[in-house]
Write a protein that binds this DNA or RNA. Structure first.
Ligand SMILES: [Zn+2]
Ligand SMILES: [Zn+2]
Ligand SMILES: [Zn+2]
Ligand SMILES: [Zn+2]
Lengths: 163, 163
DNA sequence: CCTAGAATGTTATACCGTACCGAATATGCC
DNA sequence: GGCATATTCGGTACGGTATAACATTCTAGG
């Protein structure tokens, strides 16, 4: 049986209460960092907030622009350092096929990541499907390959864009 | 049951007859292009040959360097155009996690691609596993998502490097 | 030939990411 | 509090990846 909880984040509905997404993500991040003894500094919090601002993948240099509206003279290393921290802690994911970043919807637990990316509107759904993970691991094991991490991204058209 | 033919290319053995890999890949490409009414020009053939030269992923600018040993004054667009053609025709695959390119071991048929990349030696195994493909498609369908293409890459340690 | 389309040459530039160094800031200990 | 230490951040410079735009050459078909 498929485990429904594997869908960490469905495609966001058009009129959903996104202020709630944002507030929730920030609160979770705060709690998580406190629990892990890490510092969610003002910079990191701002970057996370900007990433969640659109509920869509955002590129590093776009992030840089937005960040400059609040902090003067910010350079690429500043934003990349914040991204590294957020990636490291599982608070965001990198969308490889877009060189972009998106907030994780279940950062409180480490999980496999499978992303569904709409090529029309760039909306992203996030899976944390153990069945996929297990199948891939099993196939790899058949070749004597030990999996450390996986990049799973599906490109296609989301329900909204299929109309 | 798992279909063994899903393993398009296992990790290359240390002392394998690579001249044979290279010759086979070029011959297949030639036949395939003739069959499709496409032109495997000298440039494209040379790029494909350079990609197969090491039986490992190779980066675009490294390719550019190598190509310059044979052709003077080659610029990035030249190599990227050749790469585009080879990708389009399924003669090579892009390794997203490395921004690199590797020859396809079964270009004569269109197939799903799953890559296993060794983080120690950069060797790559290529799967064309229908079971993985089907599972992903089924999971996506559960969200009303229509899959056009997929990027599946597993990073880990290959049998040789595990020792 | 002549011509239209394809392929390649050429220049310039945009975009993505990091090495490196030094300043500021937080943390733990006396 | 004062001090040493480690982390975080500012800022410069640069390297790696990829494409836009336009000129030129090549190729196949009439
Ligand atoms: Zn939202
Ligand atoms: Zn969409
Ligand atoms: Zn070989
Ligand atoms: Zn290896």
């Amino acid at each position: 049986m498929a485990d429904d909880s594997a869908v960490v984040a469905d495609f966001p509905a058009a009129g959903h209460d996104h202020a709630r997404c944002l507030a929730g993500a920030l609160a979770t991040a705060e709690a998580l960092c406190r629990h892990r003894g890490l510092r969610l500094t003002e910079l990191r919090r701002q970057v996370l907030e900007l990433i969640w601002a659109e509920h869509r993948p955002i590129k590093a240099y776009e992030l840089l622009e937005r960040l400059r509206e609040r902090r003067s003279g910010v350079a690429p290393p500043t934003v990349y350092r914040a991204l590294d921290f957020l990636l490291q802690e599982g608070l965001i994911h990198r969308v490889e096929s877009m060189s972009a970043y998106i907030g994780c919807s279940a950062p409180e637990r480490r999980h496999p990541v499978q992303l569904l990316v709409c090529r029309r509107c760039a909306a992203v759904a996030e899976l944390a499907d153990g069945e996929i993970e297990a199948l891939l691991r099993r196939k790899a094991q058949g070749l004597g390959f030990e999996v450390d991490s996986a990049t799973i991204e599906l490109e296609g058209v989301c329900p909204q864009c299929r109309g």
